[in-house]
Design a protein around this nucleic acid. Structure first.
Length: 493
RNA sequence: GGCCCGAUGGCGGAGUGGUUACGCGCCGGACUGCAAAUCCGUUUACGCCGGUUCGAUUCCGGCUCGGGCCUCCA
């Protein structure tokens, strides 16, 4: 399954393309990371699950992967691209905390989610504020030919590069002009690459530059960090689909200016050969938002008793380019699916251990042939623009195969899970039993009640036995006599 | 107003010019004191109107509905 060519959908050409590394044997990937002014919601995290699957696939296929994810801790504005407040500054003011404390707190919260979702660590987390000098150098390099200065900052003139906005399929004209434009801008789409601190104000985060004291523009950061660590052109740039319209076209324009090349008919001139975008996680009401005040964090799912990998499963069931509907019912379905996989693997591990201790050699020498078609299906699915939905079915079919050696089957499952990242070989059924925050009964109380019930059943006192079971059910505990775990939390809304 | 995307069975969600997606749920069976859990089996679909075709859920056109972007957003 490693020799199938990997096809990926390139947003720049809107076509599937066979992955051809810039550097033979290597894969260099940059992922637009979070702005750490608040907690990430689960929709945000979908982007990193997607990037993780991409990275795992590239690794699995033998490429030496260098994956970079940035942490935006400066420069991301609240509204209008040029006149708005910095998100970081705003949150710091609201919370009366240092902006650096805000950044650290939310970066750590983000990293906790990354870990909980079994997302592999990238080769490098690039922190935007550590690259400010590099950003200034980058801006200096393109300022003369591509930028102009206004009172509010240094602006990029999008008319100075060819094919501006191709990624977004944007027209060069400006439409309705609904946006409040900054006085003096040459083109409506021009954007700030350096934002001067207004006279008389002081920001918590500001740096000296040839254009005055201020802070870098958001778009500049990604150009600089990706180029600095991966070198232009690199292989793949990923991000949420929203970035396809503004952020990435602007990034591309800067990259073109920096590399002194023109024309996006040659994809590499954009800075990356392939631009990939994951679609949104949505709720009935529309896409997820943080603006409503309360939003879906991974921790909320955990508090309700859902294992975080159930969310990963939910993501894997859909194609990354499709919108995915979130519901508690759907999350529950994903959890059940995950649980059944985990139970099957646990049973296999037990069986395998028995065979090994009894020194029974695998009887079926043709076992590899039985797995071959499923491995091929799995590999084909993943290679077809990361179709994890199909890949999952191949995994489940492998689990259902009868009369094969347990060890061999485990090896196949392990190989598949290298890409899916569901942690199937180490996760246990008990790990999935997460205590809901609302539960009041202690596990000791549950054990005590179960012990009483066991006595009653032994005495064939089923009235007592059923009463005790009902009592537990009333407290959100589901008794399962035929399950090795014995009981589970009953999840519901 | 402009650009773009989607519409699949109870829910989620793949995919395809003629053949079972799949998962969860429902239903039936095994197991169980009865259940639950588990395992096995099973049911229901491709928004509307035209066109192309021997044949369309799949291609083309129109319509309706929904969503996204055009301002920050994964």
């Amino acid at each position: 399954m490693t020799d199938i060519p990997l096809k990926l959908f390139n947003s720049l050409t809107r076509q599937l393309e066979v992955f051809q590394p810039v550097h033979p044997g290597e894969a260099r990937v940059y992922t637009c990371g979070p702005t750490v002014y608040n907690y990430p919601h689960i929709g945000n995290m979908r982007a990193y699950v997607f990037a993780d699957v991409l990275g795992r696939t590239l690794s699995f296929k033998g490429y030496d992967l260098t994956h970079v994810i940035n942490i935006t801790d400066v420069g991301h504005l609240t509204d209008d691209a040029d006149a708005g407040e910095d998100k970081m500054e705003k949150m710091a003011a609201q919370r009366a905390q240092s902006i650096w404390d805000i950044a650290r707190h939310y970066t750590e919260a983000y990293w906790a989610d990354i870990k909980a979702l079994n997302i592999r660590q990238p080769a490098r987390w690039t922190i935007a504020t550590e690259y400010v000098p590099a950003m200034i150098d980058f801006a200096k390099g393109i300022a003369e030919r591509h930028c102009y200065e206004l009172d509010s900052g240094l602006y990029f003139d999008v008319s100075t590069v060819a094919d501006y906005g191709r990624l977004a399929r944007a027209h060069t004209d400006e439409g309705e002009g609904r946006i409040e434009t900054v006085e003096g801008k040459r083109n409506a789409a021009d954007f700030a690459i350096w934002r001067k601190t207004p006279p008389g104000e002081t920001r918590q985060m500001e740096w000296d530059s040839p254009w005055g004291r201020g802070a870098p523009g958001w778009h500049l950061e990604c150009s600089v960090m990706s180029g600095a660590v991966l070198g232009f052109p690199f292989d793949i740039h990923t991000g949420g689909i929203d970035h396809r319209e503004i952020h990435h076209p602007n990034e591309i324009a800067q990259n073109q200016a920096h590399c002194c090349t023109n024309g996006l008919d040659v994809a590499a001139n954009s800075g990356a050969n392939i631009w990939m975008h994951n679609n949104f996680l949505v709720e009935r009401s529309g896409k997820m938002s943080k603006s409503a005040g309360e939003f879906l964090r991974l921790q909320l799912l955990i508090d309700k008793g859902y294992h975080p990998l159930a969310y990963r499963m939910l993501c894997l069931q859909a194609h990354y380019r499709s919108e995915l509907e979130f519901s508690w019912e759907g999350l529950g379905a994903a959890l059940v699916r995950l649980k059944r996989l985990v139970m099957a693997v646990e049973a296999l591990k037990t069986r395998h251990a028995e065979l090994v201790s009894a020194s029974i050699a695998p009887s079926d020498t043709a076992t590899g042939e039985k797995f071959a078609p499923f491995l091929e299906r799995f590999g084909g699915a993943v290679s077809d623009d990361l179709n994890t939905a199909i890949a999952l079915t191949a995994l489940e079919e492998v689990i259902a195969i009868k009369k094969v050696d347990a060890g061999d089957k485990l090896a196949v499952i392990a190989a598949m899970d290298t890409i899916l990242g569901l942690d199937l070989l180490t996760l246990t059924r008990a790990d999935l039993r997460i205590r809901p925050k609302v539960a009041t009964i202690t596990e000791a109380e549950i054990d005590a009640t179960l012990a009483l019930r066991k006595e009653a059943r032994a005495a064939k006192d089923f009235a007592t036995s059923d009463r005790l079971r009902d009592e537990l059910a009333a407290q959100g505990v589901e008794v399962m006599d035929g399950d090795s775990l014995g009981w589970d939390w009953k999840l519901g809304e």
